[in-house]
């Protein structure tokens, strides 16, 4: 699924940086019914993880009350050049990944 990641491409060592992620997902709550009364099955993202050069730095659990196309933003300290990896998992075996690089000088 399409994802939009906003990570500064460069930062000073020790700088606090903001990371923003937005990903496509319908986030169907599992509480809605169709016009003929059948329940629309739940289909949501249940978890998100961000790793910085392999080490987990942020994790979130997601629930049915979260809007479609979830947007998450968080902060970390720029320690070294490398890669941020993002992973979303969810119902029906859903899995999606993205990554972004940073140069720390």
């Amino acid at each position: 699924m399409a994802a939009l990641i906003n990570v500064p491409s460069k930062a000073r060592r020790g700088e606090i940086i903001e990371i923003r992620t937005l990903t496509s997902h319908i986030m169907e709550t599992g509480f809605r019914h169709t016009a003929d009364g059948t329940l629309v099955p739940r289909d949501i993202i249940t978890g998100f993880v961000c790793r910085y050069n392999g080490a987990e730095i942020f994790r979130a659990d997601l629930f049915p009350a979260i809007a479609a196309n979830p947007y998450l933003s968080f902060f970390t300290v720029a320690k070294e050049s490398g890669k941020f990896e993002f992973e979303w998992i969810g119902d029906n075996g859903y899995s999606s990944t993205a990554s972004a690089s940073i140069t720390v000088g």
Binding site: N6, L22, S24
Partner: peptide, 14 residues
């Protein structure tokens, strides 16, 4: 205003 916060941009990417 922010293309990385505007969910419409996900559809533009698609």
């Amino acid at each position: 205003d922010d293309d990385t916060a505007n969910p419409g941009m996900l559809f533009v990417l698609d």
